[in-house]
Amino acid sequence: MRMNILKKGLFSILIVGGMLSASAVAEARSKVIQAKGSDTILNVSQSIAENYMKENRGARIAVTGGGSGVGISALLNGTTDIAMASRNIKEKEISMAKSKGIDVREVVLGFDGITIVANLANPVKDIDDITLGKIFRGEISNWKEIGGEDAPIVVLSRDSSSGTHEFFKEHIIRENNTKKELEYGEKTLYMPSNEAIKQEIKVNKNAIGYIGMGYMDSTVESIKVDGVEATPENVSNKTYPIAREVYWYVDKNAEEDINKLVDYALSPKGQGIVKEEGFVPVK
C-alpha cells in the first residue's frame, strides 16, 4: 500500500513537472518582441519584422509608432524591447536608463533626409535653409515673400513627441543650435504623423511641411533645400543639408531573440529592406 502511495506521489510530481515544462515552452513560444517609437521608421521597421518572421517561424514581433520620445520612454519603463528613434537619445535619458539597470545600445539602422514638401500646385521649388527657418518660425508668413502667390503660408510640423520635430528645430529653426532660444511659430499646426502632414499638404495649396524621405511620393511636391533635392544619393554623399541617422535603441543585455532581430536588421537582407523603403543603408 505504501508503495502505491509512493507511486501515486511520483506520478503526480511527474505530471506537475510536465505541466511546468510545457508551460515554460509555451511561454517561450509566446514571447512577443516589442518595438515602439518613431513614426518615421515605422514602415521600415515593420517590413524588417515581417521578413524576419517569415524566415523565423517561431518569432513574434509587434511594431507600433507614437514618436521617438514615446519609444525611448517605453524602453526606460520596460514596456518595449526596441525603441525606434529618429533622434539621438539624450544624456538625461541615458542617465535614467542607468538608474534602472538598463545599459543602452545605440544601433544606427540607416540614414534619412527630412524632405520639405508642398502642394503640387505651389510654384516655389527651392528654399535656402535660412529662409526655411524664418518660415517655420513665422517670420515669413506669405508665399509672395519668397516668389510664390499672394497667400498665407500654412506651416505644418510634427508634434513634440517626434524625433523629427526635435531634429528640425535644432538644425533649421535654431540654425544648428546656434540660436537656442528660437521656437516654431505661434501659428504652426502640429500633426501626429508623417502621413497626416502629407495628406494635409495634398489638399491645402498654401501648406508647407516636412516628412521622412521614405514617405515621399508623387502626391506632394519635394522642395529643394539650398538647391539640393532630398534623394538617397544626396543623403549618402552628404550634400543634402537636412539629413540624419535613424536608430534602434536596445538594452546591451537584451535576450538572444532581440539581438538576433537586430543582427538581421543590419545584415545584407535587412539593409536591403532599409533601401527599398526609401532610406540610405548603413552597409
Rank of each mutant, 00 (worst) to 15 (best):
Q34D: 04
A35G: 07
A35C: 03
K36H: 08
G37A: 12
S38M: 10
S38I: 13
S38L: 06
D39G: 15
T40Y: 02
N43W: 02
S45Y: 01
S45Q: 12
Q46S: 11
Q46K: 15
A49T: 06
A49Q: 04
E50C: 09
E50H: 13
N51Y: 02
Y52N: 13
M53I: 13
M53A: 09
K54Q: 14
E55D: 11
E55G: 05
E55Y: 03
N56K: 11
R57E: 15
A59E: 13
I61S: 03
I61L: 03
I61Q: 06
T64P: 02
G65K: 07
G66K: 04
S68N: 07
S68R: 00
G69A: 05
G69Y: 06
V70K: 01
G71Q: 03
G71N: 03
S73D: 12
L75Y: 10
L76D: 01
N77A: 10
N77T: 07
G78L: 12
T80Y: 09
T80R: 07
D81H: 14
M84D: 00
M84Y: 07
N88V: 09
I89G: 01
I89F: 09
I89C: 04
I94S: 01
S95G: 02
M96K: 03
M96T: 14
M96H: 03
A97C: 03
K98L: 10
G101V: 10
G101E: 08
G101P: 05
D103R: 05
V104N: 03
V104C: 02
E106T: 13
E106A: 06
V108W: 03
V108A: 00
V108D: 02
G110T: 08
G110N: 05
F111S: 13
F111G: 09
D112L: 11
D112R: 14
G113K: 05
I114W: 00
I114M: 08
I116T: 13
I116V: 15
I116N: 01
A118I: 06
L120Q: 09
A121F: 04
A121N: 13
P123D: 11
P123Q: 07
K125C: 09
D126M: 11
D126I: 14
I127D: 08
I127M: 04
